[in-house]
Design a binder for these strands. Structure first.
Lengths: 153, 153
DNA sequence: CGCTAATTATTAGTGCACTAACTAATCCGC
DNA sequence: GCGGATTAGTTAGTGCACTAATAATTAGCG
């Protein structure tokens, strides 16, 4: 690795570098920022919204189950779920027959919130001016990237 | 909006929904997770790494300048920069002739760290098994998304 | 059966990331 | 050159997100 090559390819890499990981994190923050005003009307943060989506799809579920679905550490979800409980959107109780597991269930209020949530995707697509097809394409790219990171280290 | 249509398109949207914003945030977290062990050897977190990249490209720069480049709130960078100062990688001092602005400069130690950082992009690409072309493609997609979010609300 | 190992959740601690409120300095129009 | 408006940074407060350590329960093997 000579100082000559360092001034070309590797320097470019450091610039390019500032692009993929940088662009990805900025895109993520920016898109979450788009959701923010929309989700505020539902009284949810973006991470909370993702958990509610998981529960609207199926409930009750254990904390572990949600953690696996969202690729989150249980330690991240533990306080988040307590806040959703405080908001009376979910209940937290031990699973009968397995005192280790925590069963998360929707309250009537939490289940009812789904009605309002159905309007969210459309609002976001409109704001981002993306068609369902474009959304699907971006989605595929992200899924591929996630799959790569999950492969054996 | 009949209950019939609700059970089809909008329900699908809530599922699909769980995909783009979800996939994007998971991809971001996953990729940052790939950087983690690599950057630990440099004693940097990922956000700190991005700031250092900005400074290796050009320095000194003001906090405001870095904030604009990284699309971060000044309030986010303020404590982060103090930690970089504690690590003796940068200096923080007021700009001569403009007591409002804060000039961020590299210490010799901070400038020297760049040598080690040149190895990072290659390691990440190898780990993700992405070619420069694939990286460029993903990058373009993210840039497009960011541009959309930055447009007039 | 009894004991070890694995599973599940929680807590503590660090570091981002954002908003809102605040301080201080500078700009600029009169 | 004065005084309000703007700009640049900091602080406080909330909520993620992670690791490491802990606690409690269950599984399963000898």
């Amino acid at each position: 690795m000579t100082s000559v090559s360092e001034t070309t390819e590797e320097t470019d890499d450091l610039l390019l570098e500032r692009q993929l990981c940088f662009a990805l994190t900025v895109a993520s923050r920016s898109v979450v920022g788009i959701y923010k005003p929309v989700l505020e009307k539902l009284g949810l943060t973006h991470p909370q919204y993702l958990v509610m989506l998981a529960l609207w799809e199926r409930s009750p579920r254990t904390l572990k189950d949600i953690s696996d679905s969202l690729l989150h550490e249980p330690a991240t979800l533990s306080p988040l779920l307590k806040r959703l409980e405080d908001a009376e959107l979910i209940t937290r109780e031990r699973v009968a027959g397995n005192e280790r597991a925590l069963a998360i269930n929707l309250t009537p209020k939490g289940a009812a919130l789904r009605e309002q949530a159905t309007a969210v995707p459309g609002q976001i697509r409109e704001r981002l001016q993306l068609s369902r097809e474009e959304v699907a394409e971006l989605h595929q790219a992200m899924i591929g990237l996630i799959a790569t990171t999950q492969r054996t280290p």
